[in-house]
Write a protein that binds this DNA or RNA. Structure first.
Lengths: 331, 331
DNA sequence: TTGAAAGCGCTAACAG
DNA sequence: CTGTTAGCGCTTTCAA
């Protein structure tokens, strides 16, 4: 592949002039610019981004590490990050940690080593990964979940409040035994949603039964088993709060297997307004998180942080909206 | 951030020794290795990947450029690519071209400039982008769609055959006026699916009516309008073949708005077995493409190509499977 | 306005 | 087994 020296030789100028011409510096004579451009085109010259970044000590790439590419919530965040970052001239390198702390660590290390301009991450992982990221000095914004034991810019949604509202809604609908299927212990969103569920139950003067709570990976398969187990209880729930839309797929399958109808037999509210939520029958009541806005806001915060490293970390907490549809109405 | 010289100074050795020690070369005395490791740890040293790649003339990153992150088909491919590439020691940089030729071009240029080891792409774009990629000498594998006017390793699915089979299935079910909603003209998968639909109609000795065909972006919104327009025809279709699962969301919404029930009122077959396909009522009949396998196979081909540049481009064509469910059964 | 030259951080000959 | 040195391709002083 042609280098800047090849272009310089062909154009009969120095590499410095080629560099200046190609970077649109105003201090190059027009005819030289033309010669350089012609030579570059003839050779099919593509500047080496590695060399450029090494020299300039900056890259125009931000990494976005998400915990599950197959979750529409995270892909919507990705769209938001992308739109904002691209408008500012950055490429977005999307990395799928797949809810796996090891993969996450690999991606974080790779991003740091490639000296990306910044990292937006929905952390799956351990304090060690968080520390590695922070210590590197790379600007970081955490989304969806706080970065374990570390202070950095953060964009969250008030999951706990939203879960409380969802639970209160189910109670208001007359459901008596409300269950909850949420993510693994230690994952902040999963814990928050469970806490909010507790809040809602308690606010109604009822007691939480551990028999009505299931925790598993934020995946459909686990949620399906959890749903089946819940429905197999001696006194099964008549409503379920589900931790995200991927899990909702599993829980709805479990209901279908038991020939139970959402709403009428078992009230269902799930986090995340997936594209298919209105297609199921009855339509799924959801807690809609502003995923795209999370992405744009996180990207804005990251760009600001890349600009000015100094100031205090900020946390933005957005609100979710309960969209009541048929799956949580008894009639 | 600490550099290799800082580590060398602290350990009291040369940078060469640091490099060798850190890269596990066997020719370093154990005590020096220990000193180097200690120094690196103390300084929180992170090797600069840019410098390393520049020097070595290779990167351990492959780019995957997909046409829509919000389409489960592509995210499943991404999972396949990732699993295979990571096992071989590569990071995967996922780029979302969003069915936009301009974005795609930006990502391809960025990938080439960052000197990634290889690119896997589901091309949205123009021959110019394809040429830019091929000319760069970067190993390339095209997935889902061939790279416009360019010869390279390719992994496809026989969409046309699958569309024919889906159409024949609808005919066998007794549907009389079968329509088709597919992607934009010029997108190979969209054209193939339409061609297969034609094949199926023709094989039954029927004539294709242009009034029953709609083409639009591979997006839900467009497909919803297309569905409404189709159902608004004076003689509307009694069955529809839908180009992908994102579009199926739109078409099903259009049906719901018209109070039409899939299967009974309008038979539906869609490409791609989305996670929610069995949750709708009746369950959606789909043409299931082996998305994950496309990803693993493409990654295998890319890794082989990175190893040995020389040989002839290969094309692998996988088969899709028709999964008959309720939405295409009249009873 | 242009060129010569240094150097970003690292690896790989080549000597010793 | 270790150090010296050159150089990957680019940008950016510093001189001219």
């Amino acid at each position: 592949m042609a280098t800047i020296s090849d272009v310089a030789a062909l154009a009969g100028v120095s590499t410095a002039t080629v560099s200046r011409a190609l970077n649109g510096k105003p201090t190059v004579a027009p005819d030289l610019v033309a010669r350089v451009l012609a030579a570059a085109a003839e050779l099919g010259y593509r500047p080496n981004g590695l060399a450029r970044s090494l020299r300039r000590q900056v890259t125009a790439v931000v990494a976005l590490v998400i915990s599950d590419v197959e979750n529409p919530f995270f892909t919507a965040i990705a769209r938001g990050v992308e739109d904002t970052a691209q408008a500012a001239g950055y490429s977005v390198m999307l990395c799928n940690a797949d809810e796996d702390a090891v993969k996450e660590r690999q991606y974080v290390d790779a991003a740091v080593q490639e000296r990306v301009a910044g990292v937006i991450i929905s952390p799956t992982g351990t304090p060690a990964t968080a520390a590695a990221l922070l210590d590197s000095g790379t600007p970081v914004v955490a989304v969806d979940r706080p970065l374990a034991g570390a202070r950095c810019d953060t964009v969250l949604v008030d999951s706990r409040l939203a879960a409380t509202q969802a639970t209160e809604h189910l109670i208001a609908q007359g459901y008596q035994r409300i269950g909850c299927v949420t993510g693994p212990a230690g994952v902040p969103t999963a814990d928050d949603r469970l806490a909010g569920y507790h809040d809602g139950i308690a606010a109604a003067g009822r007691r939480v039964s551990q028999r009505l709570v299931r925790r598993c990976e934020y995946k459909a398969a686990g949620a399906e088993r959890a749903g089946e187990s819940l429905l197999g209880e001696r006194e099964p729930p008549d409503a379920i709060l589900v931790g995200n839309s991927v899990m909702a797929v599993g829980v709805l399958k479990a209901l279908a297997r038991g020939a139970l109808r959402p709403g009428r037999d078992v009230g269902i509210v799930s986090f995340d307004d997936a594209p298919w939520a209105t297609l199921v029958d009855p339509p799924l009541t959801v807690v809609a998180q502003p995923a795209y806005e999370i992405g744009t806001l996180a990207a804005d915060m990251l760009l600001a942080r890349i600009g000015t490293r100094g100031d205090e970390p900020k946390t933005a907490t957005l609100n979710a909206r309960l969209l009541v549809r048929g799956s949580s109405r008894r009639h």
